[in-house]
Amino acid sequence: MLTIHHLGKSQSERIVWLCEELGLTYELKHYVRDPVTALAPPELVALHPLGTAPVISDGDLLLAESGAIVEYIIAKYGDGRLTLGPDHPDYVDYIFWWHYANGNFQPNMGRNMILRRLNVPADNPIAARLNGRLAGAFALIEKRLGNAPFLAGESFTAADIMTFFSLTTMRYFMPFDLTSYPSILTYLQRIAGREAYQRAMQKGDPGMPLLLT
């Protein structure tokens, strides 16, 4: 049995959503953040040396890192769904946005989140540079979604699953005003209308308001 060890308000929502999109049978184990540190509780930390979510178990396999987990599940259970092969005309866009999600965009959000929590002044040269990079990251996504309904092109893929967390739930930790990004806002509503996404969020984070505006 595939088991998802899910921490509320975390990147593990990607895995719940992926399994719902694929119609997989899985067990969902919920973990609650420490009320003081807001970090993963000891029982989740004990599962894997990384001490972070998501983690899955599948038989004797134990795997962390959301990107690795998404790739594993698609390869083993996806039957070619939610991915594009090298012969597809949108393949290059697919692999770019897949890797951009955690290779650039999410780290960008994280670095700016830390600066804000440290109350680094906005005119600090490092803060100004990182804020500029974050604005550029959103602008790049905005441009892409102004030209295509999904990040890889005409088809919804795992690249969208990888990216959506940073545009939505991550803004609980790193608030960002999307008023100036109409294509992103339209995209958020388009994705939020997917039944699999709605089921995943209800199962993984019931009652949590979704940041879709």
Rank of each mutant, 00 (worst) to 15 (best):
Q189T: 05
E195I: 09
T37F: 10
I69E: 08
R33L: 09
V70H: 05
M208C: 04
L28P: 04
T25F: 01
F165G: 06
P86Y: 10
G23F: 00
L212A: 11
A53M: 01
Y31C: 08
L167D: 09
G51V: 12
L145P: 06
I95E: 12
G153I: 01
Q11T: 06
T186H: 04
Y72P: 12
G193K: 03
Y100L: 04
Y31M: 06
I114V: 15
Q198V: 10
L7F: 08
F105R: 09
A196S: 15
L62C: 14
L118G: 01
F173G: 07
R33E: 08
I126P: 00
A40Q: 06
Y197A: 08
H88V: 10
V36I: 13
V55Y: 02
A192V: 03
D205T: 13
D79R: 15
A127F: 03
P41D: 13
F173I: 02
Y72W: 13
R190Y: 05
T163C: 11
F138Y: 15
S155Q: 14
P206Q: 14
H6D: 08
A53G: 09
H99W: 07
D177N: 04
A122R: 04
D87K: 13
G204E: 12
K203E: 11
R129W: 12
S166I: 05
A135D: 13
P182M: 04
Y77G: 07
